[in-house]
Amino acid sequence: MPAAPDSITSPQNPRIKNLLKLQQKSSERRQQNLTIIEGHRELTIAHQAGVAVQALFVCPELATDAQLRELETLFGALPERFSVSKAVFEKVAYREGSDGVLALVRPPHRTLSDLDLPPNPLLLVLEAVEKPGNLGAILRTADAAQADAVIICDPRTDLYNPNAIRSSIGCIFTVPTVATTRQELLAWCAEKGIRTYAAALTPQARPYTQLDFRGPTAFVMGTEADGLTPELREACYQTIIIPMAGYIDSLNVSTATAILTFEAVRQRG
């Protein structure tokens, strides 16, 4: 990529200071309606998904020639492009072995009414998700399985936390993702005729292999620490379990979500 109009060599540069604030504070991300994508692959996926890139920061010492050429093709007309020295870039990079590409983007914001669902949707619902790594892993599952949406009830982390973007490898931009409340979700699923399956260890729970997920389906998953709230669990159509043959009685939430999701995919043929 040819030299950007401006070159940043000081960590005291106001733009660098703002990047750090956006990385560290969800309040800043909400107030500015911006977030950060680090990584050439993640940025390319986001761009293909139509995400609006506001500014691009590139370290020519870390990015490969092939990446620089591709970035020039994709963002050569972007007014806000900056070349960043290696020392400064390493201060704002939040991943090890960074490839020297970072972008400031305006994340999409959707509501349940924005979702354009097929007649037989497959949805993944997470209640009170708080670990960006789990959210990212589930978004990768949703992308791979072509789930129709990921819905977060009462989230404890903002959806576009840079660590969630990194963990999802950019899939948070390829899968329609919505934050809502428990009450709104349940009313919306009832209106749409979507059956909600709560993953929870209860006496009434049935093994997931015994159920038919070929109709409109939403898998409802809780946190690893607390599981689903009783209110949401009891409001769901059916409680399901993944039978466990060993000493433990539960799986990582992202692993459990993947098992259920791909069973639905298998049933749908």
Rank of each mutant, 00 (worst) to 15 (best):
Y208K: 04
P11K: 06
D249T: 12
V58W: 02
P203T: 09
P107F: 09
S10D: 15
V58M: 03
H40F: 15
Q183V: 07
A147I: 05
P118F: 11
G39I: 13
F213C: 01
Y160N: 02
A199H: 01
L251H: 12
A147F: 09
K192A: 06
I152G: 03
L139W: 13
L124V: 14
L115G: 10
P11R: 05
T217V: 12
P11W: 05
A258G: 15
T73Q: 14
L102R: 05
L22T: 07
F57P: 00
R266I: 06
N161R: 13
G170V: 11
L124R: 00
L185A: 02
G193Q: 04
A179V: 10
N252G: 01
N120V: 05
P203S: 07
P79K: 05
V105E: 10
I259Y: 13
G100T: 06
S10V: 13
P121H: 03
Q210G: 00
T181Y: 09
A264Y: 05
G222V: 05
L115T: 12
T257Y: 11
L185G: 07
G97Q: 12
G97E: 09
R195A: 14
Q12D: 09
A49Q: 14
T229C: 03
A145N: 13
P243C: 06
R41S: 15
L186T: 12
L78H: 08
V88M: 02
A145I: 13
T180N: 02
Q210L: 00
T261P: 12
L251G: 06
V253C: 08
H47D: 04
Q24C: 00
Q183Y: 07
P11A: 04
S26T: 14
V88Y: 05
I194H: 05
A145R: 09
D212F: 07
E72P: 01
A164D: 09
T64M: 01
V92L: 08
G227I: 03
L232I: 15
P132C: 09
D249N: 15
R166V: 08
L135H: 13
R69C: 00
V253W: 04
A235W: 04
L135T: 14
C189I: 05
E231H: 08
Y247V: 10
T35Q: 11
K192T: 06
A52P: 03
A235Q: 14
S26W: 12
G269E: 15
P108I: 12
V88I: 08
S98K: 01
A87Y: 02
A63W: 09
T180P: 07
I165V: 14
F262A: 14
N134I: 11
L159W: 07
L117P: 02
N163G: 00
G227R: 01
E127C: 10
V105G: 10
P207S: 06
L102K: 08
S7A: 15
L260Y: 11
S98Q: 00
E72H: 05
T157F: 07
D226N: 02
Q238R: 15
V150D: 04
A256T: 00
E234Y: 07
T64D: 08
V178Y: 08
L228N: 07
P230L: 10
